[in-house]
Nucleic acid binder design. Structure first.
Lengths: 229, 229
DNA sequence: AATATTTTTGATCGATCGTTCAATCAATAA
DNA sequence: TTATTGATTGAACGATCGATCAAAAATATT
């Protein structure tokens, strides 16, 4: 990192705030606008000028607060990711308390999927799902390391949990099952209209209720009955 | 389309060639270089200058042959997609000939997945899978319409085939099952290292043999046992 | 051989990119 | 009040972008 902007210092000084909600309005507006534009146009496709325009702040203010374009990009994930990770960990704990192996597997799968699938429902971070989907499926994300740093730990926890619930599966089977779940989930989160188009409206990713029911059911069946015969 | 370049005319005149293999070397080198760079950096991330440099042709030659950056992008899909679509259609025909419903469903699933999963094995179009994965998960692809024009027809054929093999499923169930398959497949095709990293080497997407076995098994289980209880 | 056509080349266009800087405004501390 | 710090603003930097042009080279046609 060559330029840190004001992100680190201001983060230390704003720690009196509960969850960064009432933080500096300009900063928040920039992040909010960037979240939408990065999700729709990608990291390279969205320009700082577009973001500044959408946030109604002068161009230079973006570099001032976040140091660089990648600093802004990273700040979005640092704002949104902890909530997702925390919900997943909580879900894993709830699954641990369940003794029946069938129900326990179901709770593990739901703990992985639901915190993400319900993102579309939340007004303020509706596009973070699409942004995260982009980052997961972007080869350049390996350099940035955002996914690795923020999501790999909880991912390994899920894989370990699956190993415990399905002790007769090989390492490869467990991991492939996990990746199938991630792939299906990311596909749904990042979709921008092809699903509803191809299904003639039968599938609507905006309908979290229906989407969650179907996806969980399908992926639970995959994990339960796949790979082992 | 404002600029057509030379793509349309040359395509009409080169129709004496079997499959565009021995076509103009410069044109082919540009497409080949563009395929790699678009896959790694995305449409906006890769520049025409990078592509021309990698193809060892002058910058202006790219615009001459393909008219525009998007023209070049589209030319890649027009070169690679027909082969995939044809293989899928053939696989569907083979499935149609199978009378046992269990085996038939398996053939349908394999017809969808294998033509794509084996892409990594083919030297010349090894990165097309990653490029296609990018296009599928890019919201801007709706404007380009490449997926819609080239892949939607065969996609609908698959959905119809699944409807026939699973007559007791609702429209939504069939379509969600299809999207789960697409999502998992695209995730594997576009992965650039996270799968092997998270699994500590237990999963290797480069190993088509093992990858296909696991993915087909998992997704077949999802389609067979998912959604209906 | 002479002509016409297609392909290649180097140079350059205007536009936009991310970033930087000095000046100004706002808020707080002295 | 004055001094100090942080936040904001407008302007500009060099670099790179996609696209275009006229001239040269290569190829095809007559």
């Amino acid at each position: 990192m060559k330029t840190l902007g004001r992100q680190k210092a201001s983060a230390e000084e704003r720690n009196e705030l509960a969850s960064g909600e009432t933080e500096h309005p300009a900063r928040a507006r920039i992040i909010s606008a960037a979240e939408v534009l990065f999700a729709e146009l990608g990291f390279d496709g969205a320009s700082i000028r577009q973001i500044a325009l959408a946030a109604k702040v002068p161009l230079a203010l973006v570099s001032y607060h976040f140091g660089s374009k990648e600093g802004l990009y990273r700040a979005i994930f640092e704002l949104r990711a902890p909530s997702i990770v925390e919900q997943r960990k909580t879900g894993l704990l709830l699954a641990d308390a369940e003794k029946d192996p069938e129900r326990r597997l179901e709770l593990v799968v739901k703990a992985l999927l639901i915190p993400m699938l319900k993102l579309r429902r939340e007004e303020k971070s509706a596009r973070f799902g699409a942004l995260l989907a982009r980052e997961v499926s972007d080869p350049k994300s390996l350099d940035r390391g955002i996914i690795r740093d923020m999501f790999d730990p909880v991912a390994r926890a899920f894989i370990q949990a699956m190993r415990e619930v399905l002790p007769d599966r090989t390492n490869a089977e467990i991991n492939w099952a996990y990746q199938v779940m991630i792939g299906a989930m990311v596909h749904v989160m990042g979709d921008a209209g092809r699903i509803v188009r191809l299904s003639d409206g039968a599938c609507d990713p905006e309908d979290d209720q229906q989407t969650t029911v179907h996806i969980v059911s399908l992926l639970l069946a995959a994990v339960r009955h796949g790979s082992k015969m």
